[in-house]
């Protein structure tokens, strides 16, 4: 409980930093003026006001992705489960591109149904393929199936993109995963979906705890394993697909945050899930702020930052010998 409070405190600090720091230097009094003066009277205040939705979106997306990762890792009992590595993001990406190309889906909100469909289809395919066979979905099989499916989806994607330069121009900015340039108007319609995903995720916590003992023991304890898996899977697809639709594919956050959280909480999902969400929100904001600072006067999209920071963590997890099972 104390840890969660500390985490919440950290979120406040990072949110403040996210409002204070950016490509344009704005002094603290001006930031406060920007927060209190509506509408903005000068450029500095306007800059601060564009940082508000960006910060909120960062919190939402970070928490959603980390939660999706934690639930996915619990449901598959696989320490390497991550939406981006498992091809879920590319599934969403392909569907969004088809949406842009065929139906002219231009706004973030209209990306959502496409991304959800693509994410769901890709995750079912990847998990289905990987879990065939006697050993079930081992980390290696899951990662390979995901990487291979990603590669396939990517070449289909480039087939669409190469014939439509206009779609490429829109897509390449969506693809890097960024939380800038979105307004509250685009966020509001997707909030209920994310909320539903989060509720389902927390509801699945007990089931995931039972699953962690192994399917046979879980069944012996009276837990219906397939219901737990289905609820968790639905939560992960809702959270990850929607977050991907509004912010683009952001990799490695869903992978690394649950591992970080597990260091504080141990394996109990009732604590693990909220910790993951808080840590994910905080780290996404931190990565975004860092991306704004290292490439001044431009900024580096947060999806790039999380990949650069997260890949070493992934490799470290793999290098530790005991990655077999959760």
């Amino acid at each position: 409980m104390l840890g969660l409070l500390l985490g919440a405190l950290g979120l406040v600090v990072f949110s403040a930093l996210s409002l204070l720091l950016g490509s344009r230097s704005v002094a603290v009094p001006d930031v406060i003026a920007g927060l209190t003066t509506w509408p903005a009277t000068d450029i500095a205040q306007a800059a601060v006001q564009t940082r508000i939705p960006r910060t909120v979106l960062g919190l939402i997306v970070g928490a959603s992705l980390a939660l999706a990762g934690a639930v996915l890792q619990g449901a598959t009992r696989n320490p390497l489960a991550d939406p981006a590595l498992l091809g879920v993001s590319n599934g969403a990406a392909l569907a969004v591109v088809v949406g842009i190309a065929v139906a002219g889906a231009g706004t973030a909100a209209s990306h959502v149904p496409w991304a959800l469909g693509g994410a769901a289809a890709a995750s079912v395919v990847v998990y289905g393929i990987a879990s065939l066979g006697r050993e079930g979905a081992t980390p290696l099989k899951l990662a390979l199936a995901g990487a291979a499916t990603s590669a396939t989806l990517y070449s289909l994607l480039s087939g669409v993109l190469l014939s439509r330069t206009d779609v490429l121009d829109e897509f390449r900015f969506w693809q890097v995963g960024g939380i800038g340039g979105t307004g509250f108007g685009e966020m509001l319609p997707v909030l209920p979906v994310l909320l539903l995903g989060a509720v389902l995720a927390f509801a699945s916590a007990r089931g995931l705890d039972a699953l962690a003992l192994g399917d046979d023991v879980a069944r012996g304890l009276g837990s219906r394993t397939w219901i737990a898996r289905a609820v968790a899977g639905l939560a992960a697809v809702l959270l990850c697909g929607t977050a991907t639709a509004i912010a683009g594919p952001i990799g490695f956050l869903g992978l690394t945050m649950p591992h970080l959280a597990r260091m504080f909480t141990g394996p109990d999902h009732r604590w693990l899930l909220p910790y993951s969400a808080v840590l994910g929100a905080g780290l996404l904001l931190a990565a975004d702020v860092l991306g704004r600072l290292v490439a001044r006067p431009g900024d580096i999209e947060v999806g790039i930052m999380t990949a650069v920071l997260g890949a070493p963590v992934f490799i470290a997890i793999v290098r530790r010998r005991r990655v077999r099972e959760l």
Partner: peptide, 27 residues
Amino acid sequence: SRFVLIGIGVGALLNAVVSYALTRAGV
């Protein structure tokens, strides 16, 4: 399997670099 898994991780990192480079270029 370690070699393969590390390869996949490194590949994902490099793909992020590709995406970044694509946004910095003209269409």
